[in-house]
């Protein structure tokens, strides 16, 4: 298994853990009497699960197992692979931190962080699409 795939799958497992923790907070907020601000974690929970866990697992396994690009470059340009990993993770982490803060502390003016996060994730996903496209082929 290539190193990049191992990074993806292990990062994915950490995000799954974080997602489940966020979920426990959401599900028990009334029992524990948590402040309503906890509800800002809803989209965070959901994207930790979907982007952090499911998407990173798919990216890792697809990078590893899809048909070879060419004999010399079986997985396409490795630099593009690592750039995808970096952008996706920076984008997700920035979102997880900034999204609740934008609502809870509007006076901090952190909205621009969500723009950074959106652009990082957008670039990561289209990079993945462009790099994976030619590896999906008939034999």
């Amino acid at each position: 298994m290539p190193l990049l795939s191992r990074y993806y799958i292990k990062a994915g497992m950490l995000y799954l853990l974080l997602a489940l923790l966020a979920n426990v907070l959401l599900a028990s907020s009334s029992t524990l009497g948590l402040p309503p601000a906890i509800n800002t974690l809803r989209p965070v929970y959901f994207h930790l699960l979907m982007v952090g866990w499911v998407t990173e697992l798919i990216f890792g396994v697809a990078y590893w197992m899809f048909p070879k690009f060419t004999r010399e470059l079986p997985r396409g340009n490795p630099l593009a692979g690592w750039a995808t990993f970096g952008l996706l993770n920076i984008g997700l982490i920035v979102r997880v931190v900034a999204e609740p803060l934008v609502t809870i502390k509007p006076e901090w003016n952190l909205g621009w962080l969500l723009v950074v996060s959106a652009l990082c994730q957008l670039a990561a996903v289209w990079l993945f699409v462009v790099n994976t496209w030619p590896r999906i082929k008939e034999r």
């Binding site: 999204e99 969500l114 723009v115 994730q121 957008l122 996903v125």
Partner: peptide, 14 residues
């Protein structure tokens, strides 16, 4: 789908 998400996320911040 992610492009739509990115637009919404941008819009949520700015």
């Amino acid at each position: 789908g992610v492009s739509a998400g990115a637009l919404m996320l941008w819009n949520k911040g700015v």
